[in-house]
Amino acid sequence: MLRHAATSTLLLFKNRLVVLRLLRQFFVTTGQISQFAARYWREVWFPPYEFQELLKQCFLIGNKSMALVGTTGFIMGIVLTLQTRPTLIEFGAQSWMPAMVGIAIVREIGPVLTALICAGKVGSGIGAELASMKVTEQIDAMEVSGTNPFKYLVITRVTATTIMIPVLVIMSDLISLGGSAIVENLKGGVSFTLYFSKVLEFLQFGDLLPSIIKSFFFGFAIGIIGCYKGYTSSRGTEGVGRTANEAVVIASLLVFVLDFIAVLVTDIFYEL
């Protein structure tokens, strides 16, 4: 009996230690990521600027994710409209469809969905690419040939995601609304012009601006996490896959956290 109690206390103690260790690891990682992000902001202003590499990265990100983001956005627009139609009809509020879908997509679904897809596609790609460059000493080789690898690899990629995610979000928003308009057109006989003029009528600048701003943050977070994970990955080939995986997990989580913060902040502004 006593022994049992002792072991269970010991177990509890051990579990506490595990929790403490995880907690410590969490804070250490957060600190390191913040330092990495701070280094980005310190170095981004000064030459040499790697414009060519930046353009290439922008193109690659757009090119890689456009189809996926477009497809999911389209499906989301259709599904959202189909799912809400019956309820709106019941309340005789069909005419509110463009406003409702428009606000849901522009404020929330477009940015978050796009960011999550890009965290999976772009974030993991950056993580794996940099990790394998690190393992095969390509990053050292850059340093030896007089190119600052942080500038050439990290600054270009983070800047590219920060620019491109908002662009992809806007694209996704438009395609989603298009999908929704098609459903309304086929099922409710609403013309496209009517649909979009309704959307524009209800959608305000106050809906669009916060969502664009938070998209920039999502883009920055995805780029920084991918680069941090890849650039600081420990040596070893099997580390490359793990790095990509961790980059996706952390970046996705961060997208939700940032979204939460963004919504709280926007809410405060609306109350003013």
Partner: peptide
């Protein structure tokens, strides 16, 4: 480098041009 450390994403030409760009 021990493992050659050629840049995977660049052609041989671009690999050789890389050290030239900063000097």
């Amino acid at each position: 480098f021990q493992g050659s450390a050629l840049y995977d994403s660049m052609t041989v030409r671009e690999n050789l041009e890389f050290p030239l760009r900063r000097h």
